[in-house]
């Protein structure tokens, strides 16, 4: 919802804290998820994530959440889906070039970032979205990434390795933006499977 989305940006500091807590909980639950199988928990968790983040951020379930790096303003709501800042077409007053009635997602992102503890993350160059992950849970992805990093799991995908290297700063802050851990079947090309 547009209004709620704007509210979220105004309360970016509090939501950043909440988000960190959710993420921490997911990471802590990794042993449980592993036992149950990430493949099996994917759909129920994605369902919850879709509804919560859909309400607060107009989340599009790109599966590679970077809200902590974008002032809690979801960049997938930018009509050009820019991940690295506003385009050159922003209208006077900070309105969108393509949808003139909407505030520019990135003007909001930059103001949201000002109050956040990790506001400086907005300066990190983020990688392009991996479109095959659309519809999957970003929370679970972070849990897998952090657990895999702890285990120093081997990286099997050459494509993922080069993106993670080329965008190493983004990966440090937002592991789900350039993931390396192996994906469960249910987390890839979900949209296509439906």
């Amino acid at each position: 919802m547009y209004r709620l989305r704007l509210w979220s940006v105004r309360h970016s500091r509090g939501l950043e804290r909440l988000y960190k807590w959710v993420e921490g909980t997911m990471v802590a639950l990794d042993p449980l998820f592993s036992r149950l199988g990430y493949d099996r928990v994917e759909r129920p968790i994605a369902f919850v994530e879709r509804n919560v983040k859909g309400l607060l951020f107009d989340c599009e379930m790109c599966g590679q959440c970077v809200l902590s790096s974008t002032g809690m303003s979801c960049p997938m709501n930018c009509p050009k889906q820019l991940r690295n800042g506003p385009c050159g077409g922003v209208r006077p007053g900070g309105f969108c070039e393509v949808r003139p009635w909407m505030r520019c997602v990135w003007v909001d992102a930059w103001s949201g970032a000002q109050t956040m503890r990790n506001g400086a993350w907005i300066e990190e160059v983020l990688p392009p979205v991996d479109r095959s992950l659309k519809g999957s849970s970003s929370w679970l992805r972070v849990a897998r990434e952090k657990a895999a990093a702890r285990r120093a799991a081997p990286v099997r995908s050459r494509a993922r390795a080069i993106v993670a290297r080329a965008f190493s700063g983004a990966r440090r802050n937002e592991p789900a933006s350039a993931p390396l851990a192996e994906e469960p079947t249910s987390a890839v090309n979900q949209e296509a499977q439906r």
Partner: peptide, 16 residues
Amino acid sequence: PVFDLDSISLLRALKT
């Protein structure tokens, strides 16, 4: 509209 990359990720892709 495609917008698969943005100008900044495009720069990094070409640099790579």
